[in-house]
Design a protein around this nucleic acid. Structure first.
Lengths: 189, 189
DNA sequence: CAAGGTAGTAATCGACTGATAACATGTCAA
DNA sequence: TTGACATGTTATCAGTCGATTACTACCTTG
């Protein structure tokens, strides 16, 4: 049996950030223990603290990671050259399927009253806004509407109205979900 | 000096819910202690637990209270008879000035993975959606766009891009904020 | 006034958790 | 080989927090 090989601090940190994203996505900053993250990555809890200095810095690393991954998803969806907002919208749907990245962002928004967290979250949000404009050439109004829809979807995923762990839909949920423009299925048949 | 008069349990509970809204709005469910709420309401911490049974039920009461107050704000803005979405939008701006009610909702969304919290938050959200449609006669698509904008504003307030405790605006923030339709100032002059 | 219910507190506890310190183990260059 | 550095753990602590228990003070009503 392959009992954990030793990794470099950089590799282990990377692994821990991914575990942190999963853990913080589920329970938020205050609701997650460093021990949970440690168990997910199969290391000891004190080692997590040693590598990141504090729980707060681990959370910040998770938020930063989520931002970068979201930016990456948009860039990939855009391909080379100009892109349509609809393309980024489909990328967003892809992110919703994972749920973790957007959930971490939501917990970041909620925790932004903390003076150490707010700036990092704001910065990441700003980068995403500017990237949307840059990739699509959208006007501020269009980008704003795009992000607004994104925030609604993020919330709907968090309260389990859409996404993988959605509850059985009540009438208003079905109506609201149906109101979204249909995903243009590039039907290969 | 008027040292606290005795109140009925109902009155004290009401007072505690208001304190809970303020406390939970700032730090969320896991990040808030029952002692903070107790101090805000100037009662002892065990009494808070006695009146509500648990911290979780206190949080649920705060979420429920926030929902009701938001519904009330919409109803007030609509007046009697049919209303425009723009009227509700102004009501939303009024709520943003307080920040607490919408912040509690945001923390509710974030905490909805908890099986005891999710249903309450979903129910409140559903009531607000239906109320918007009912008051304005809006189609699902319009109501969805209205809520999307609301979610974006809620997030922007949480990360201190808009609202009372907004940070000094960076260029992207100014651009994004400017992109919102101007509030139609009913200039009395 | 007696008595019972209601409002509220002080004291305390057990569990949890982030962080520190001391120690162990593996790896690699000279 | 050896020694020095990097990876990782065990043990432990000090503070925090939700909850329980037992108690006190007040008010009402017959």
């Amino acid at each position: 049996m392959t009992s954990k090989p030793r990794l470099t601090a950089a590799q282990r940190s990377e692994q821990l950030v991914e575990a942190a994203v999963r853990a913080f996505a589920a329970n938020g900053f205050a609701g997650t223990t460093t021990d949970e993250v440690a168990r997910l990555a199969e290391v000891s809890q004190p080692y997590v603290i040693r590598l990141f200095g504090s729980k707060q810095r681990l959370f910040l690393a998770a938020v930063e990671h989520a931002c970068v991954r979201i930016e990456q998803a948009f860039r990939d969806a855009a391909g080379s050259g100009a892109a349509e907002l609809a393309q980024l919208g489909e990328a967003y749907d892809g992110l919703l399927a994972n749920r973790d990245l957007l959930a971490v962002m939501l917990h970041g928004y909620a925790a932004s009253a903390d003076p150490a967290i707010g700036p990092v979250v704001r910065d990441g949000f700003g980068r995403i806004y500017r990237l949307v404009r840059e990739l699509t050439g959208a006007q501020p109004e269009e980008a704003r509407e795009f992000l607004a829809t994104g925030m609604l979807l993020t919330v709907l995923a968090a309260i389990q109205v859409v996404g993988p762990d959605a509850v059985p839909p009540e009438p208003w949920m079905a109506e609201l979900v149906e109101s979204f423009p249909e995903k243009s299925a590039t039907d290969p048949d």
